[in-house]
């Protein structure tokens, strides 16, 4: 039975190039200096996560963007606001979960990560936000083999 997509015709954006990163002086500078985390770096971690429904990355679907990432390195805080493609997107929580898992693997444990949907971008905004930021719920979700499978698939493209 054909399953209908929520959003059969998403808008695709261009992928921003990574070229500008190579110009940073710290790459050639002191190797021991701790590099501060910034939005660009966080964005690099999550931009290539594949959307669960379409074969495009979150960046290309404009679900995540660098502007919507807030990083406070000193305070060890990261805040991400992502925009699901559709108001009723039932994949919103899954996308949020993928982002969280990716950051869990990529960031040092000192960081507190808050993941929310962009205000006004989802019909059940409050419920989704609450679910994504409850660590027990997230941990329980990650014990569900089906969900873990789906998350791994989405993250496969991002691991390269």
């Amino acid at each position: 039975m054909a399953v209908e997509l929520i959003n059969p015709n998403p808008v695709i954006h261009e992928r921003k190039s990574k070229a500008h990163r190579l110009d940073l002086p710290s790459v050639h500078g002191d190797e021991d200096a701790a590099e501060e985390f910034d939005a660009t770096e966080i964005f690099d971690h999550i931009r290539d996560i594949t959307d669960p429904e379409h074969p495009y990355s979150l960046e290309q679907l404009n679900v995540v963007s660098e502007e919507a990432i807030m990083v406070d390195d000193k305070g060890s805080k990261v805040g991400i606001k992502f925009t699901p493609t559709v108001q009723h997107c039932s994949m919103a929580t899954l996308i949020g979960l993928c982002i969280r898992v990716k950051l869990l693997r990529s960031l040092p444990p000192r960081f507190k990560v808050d993941i929310n949907v962009a205000p006004g971008s989802h019909a059940s905004e409050a419920a989704v936000n609450k679910q994504l930021n409850d660590k027990e719920r997230v941990a329980a979700a990650l014990e569900n083999p089906h969900l873990v499978d789906m998350v791994e698939k989405c993250l496969a493209s991002s691991e390269q």
Binding site: M1, V3, E4, L5, I6, N7, P8, N9, E53, V86, Q87, S90, M91
Partner: peptide, 26 residues
């Protein structure tokens, strides 16, 4: 629950006009 609520009950096929109606985005 799942992604799309399209009534596809008991093996009956979609009729033409219903299929056309599905392409609306959003």
């Amino acid at each position: 629950p799942s992604q799309a609520c399209v009534v596809n009950l008991k093996g009956q096929k979609q009729s033409e006009e219903e299929q056309q109606g599905q392409a609306k985005d959003g």
